[in-house]
Design a binder for these strands. Sequence first.
DNA 1: TTTATACAGTACTAATTTAGTCCTATATCG
DNA 2: CGATATAGGACTAAATTAGTACTGTATAAA
Lengths: 151, 151
Amino acid sequence: MLRLSKLTDYATVLLAYMAKTNSHLHTAVELSEATAIHLPTVSKVMKVLSKAGVVYATRGSKGGYQLAQGPEQITVASIIGALEGPVAITECSSQTHDCEQASACEIKGNWGVVNRAIVNVLESITLADMMVTQQEYSSAEIQVSWQGLSR
Amino acid sequence: MLRLSKLTDYATVLLAYMAKTNSHLHTAVELSEATAIHLPTVSKVMKVLSKAGVVYATRGSKGGYQLAQGPEQITVASIIGALEGPVAITECSSQTHDCEQASACEIKGNWGVVNRAIVNVLESITLADMMVTQQEYSSAEIQVSWQGLSR
DNA sequence: TTTATACAGTACTAATTTAGTCCTATATCG
DNA sequence: CGATATAGGACTAAATTAGTACTGTATAAA
């Protein structure tokens, strides 16, 4: 679990296709046909990506979508952020509200550290990284270190 | 989003309480009273943690739960794994099934890199780390680096 | 200026997932 | 044997997500 929504997954597929064929504007119909994602869903996803500024939209005849930045500049964090809002693995990690558990919940806020670590990872991986084929991945490396407390 | 279930959150609260008072076996009733989490819910969570081997359970009179390892050995990944199964941010990241998107989905498997990076983070943070109070956190540091491809 | 094209916004329904509760079974101590 | 405590499973209700549809707005070309 710790799962992303399907819409976020669709978004990466759509954006990856756009990145590969960057020469022209892509209509929702074209994207739907190219990715086999139903048109209403493509439309829903692209609207959200457009609102978030991940893609530019042009209306009217000859209109369509294009990437707002190069694939190297579009981070996984920004894609997730567009579709699902800020990453917050627990209610505590995001909200300013008072926890009902009150005094009993001494973990309060400590998920924040985990959350921040995950956000760091998501901000360091780009659409370009995700487009690399699986074989090439065998040589990819990720290093994560949690330094603990400097006490 | 990218949210954990409430049960996972409860689990950390319960485990943190157990870690602080490690001298004796904790019954579900005691844990419920100490954490203000309803007894049926405590019971549900502890059963799962026990099955996963995060805690030991002793039945019968004088029975109860105790941590299976020290707080420094219990990783956030193992807690999440117990309650929610293996971390898999998308269906593709875990399943062996064939994707319906088939050829169109060239992103297939590439979430795996993101997934692995997140698992690394979760395995590097322990229950002990999470128990530190918030103030002390200001001095905590996490470093994450994504090295990209070595081509 | 009208028509066709294409995105924008919003609302609604169905499906899925999660949370919470309860009941019965099994193990252990005294 | 009886009291205590966990194990396992089933069930209901709530919340979230997915998918669809409808109406509005902008643009280009005839």
